[in-house]
Structure formats: C-alpha cells, structure tokens
C-alpha cells in the first residue's frame, strides 16, 4: 500500500472535536439534578451527586442554580496550580486534572472566580468538568427532558466565558428578585 494513501486514511479517521462550550440558562433549571446523576454515572460508575462535576445549588426552593466550569479563556485555575497538575485539552479546551500530581491544596478553588472546582469526596483531588471529551452527558439529559438549561454551543472562545463563573448563591439572589420581586431579597441570607 502506498504510504500517502494510508496517511489520508488516518487523516479521515481522526476525530475532529470542535471546541465546545456549555451555555447555561439559570432560569430554565428545573432542579431535577439528572445532570449530577449522568455526570457521576459517567465519571464514577454510579449515581454520586457530590462527585459530579456539574453541581446544582438550591439556596431556596425554586431557585435552582447550575454550577460548572466555564473554561475561562485565561484559565486562572491552571495558572494557580503550584505543581502543574492542571492543563487544558487542545481539542475541547476543557480543564484537565492530573490526579496523580494534584496535592489537594485548594489553590485552583481559590483562583476560580466562581469557586467551581472542589475536592472529590472520595480521593480529595481537585475535580473539574472535562466536557466529557466533547459530548457532555449533562447536556444530553437536560435536552432530553426539554429544559434546555444546558445547551452546547460551538462558538469560539471569548472573554465573556469568565463572566459565567459566578458564586451560585449570588446567582440565586439575582434569580430570587427576578422571580419573586421584593420578597426575593428576603429568601436567602
């Protein structure tokens, strides 16, 4: 077989993963937490909400907030890691944690504007969404249920992503006023 032909075959077979970003519409989150179940099923092999990379906060009932990595363009978490345990995937642009290197110091948590990463309840290592290699399971189940709180976009990276990395209680306080008017200012301390 001529060499160039086999090269072409390899080129066609290589998976083209477009950069993906998970857009989030907080008002549309139902609070069902199937994203937590689907994520932990995929990464942990069973339903483990507290090990899910996407986390649903509910500071007051009716105010459910989706909390997950926004892949900030400047990756402050990666920059802050003292042992270079964090890196980025060249295809999906997701943050990748090397669990061998991670020393559970929490620097990435503090560096993140929304405090998104957390230490795993099992091995205590930094845990961050890896976008499931381009086919996020959370989006799959959210779409299936018709909420459209999490949707995949293939927009190019931009500096706006970092704005979505917000503390979930702050998001909930905003949602509270939007949903409940003045009363909303009283329902979260």
């Amino acid at each position: 077989m001529p060499h160039y032909k086999s090269n072409i075959r390899i080129l066609l077979v290589k998976k083209m993963v477009k950069p993906t970003w998970i857009a989030r519409d907080q008002s549309a989150c139902s609070g069902c937490r199937r994203c937590e179940l689907a994520c932990s099923m995929h990464h942990e092999g069973w339903m483990w909400p507290e090990a899910s990379r996407v986390r649903i906060f509910m500071p007051f009932p009716g105010l459910e907030v989706v909390h997950l990595c926004s892949q900030c363009q400047d990756y402050p978490c990666v920059a802050s890691c003292p042992v270079e345990a964090l890196s980025t995937d060249p295809d999906t642009k997701a943050v990748i944690v090397d669990r061998e290197k991670c020393i559970s110091c929490g620097a990435c948590i503090r560096a993140c504007p929304g405090q998104v990463p957390f230490l795993h309840p099992g091995d205590n290592k930094a845990t961050i969404c890896d976008l499931c290699d381009g086919e996020p399971k959370c989006v799959e189940v959210c779409t299936e249920a018709g909420y459209n709180a999490l949707t995949l976009t293939d927009e190019g990276s931009n500096i706006h992503r970092k704005l979505y990395s917000r503390h979930p209680v702050e998001v909930a306080k905003d949602l509270a006023v939007k949903l409940f008017g003045e009363k909303g200012e009283e329902v979260i301390e």
Binding site: A28, C32, Y147, K183
Partner: peptide
Amino acid sequence: KWADFNCTTNCMKVSCIKTGPWKGD
C-alpha cells in the same frame, strides 16, 4: 418546569404573588 430530585415530570410550578395585599407569597 420545577422538579424534585431525579424527576422529569415536573408537575410542580413556582407561584408568586407580586402585587396586592398578599404580595410576596
């Protein structure tokens, strides 16, 4: 579409009274 844990039927809705004597309910 408001859910309880692991539910996609979402029979619940959130109601809020925004005006009048019962505002804030």
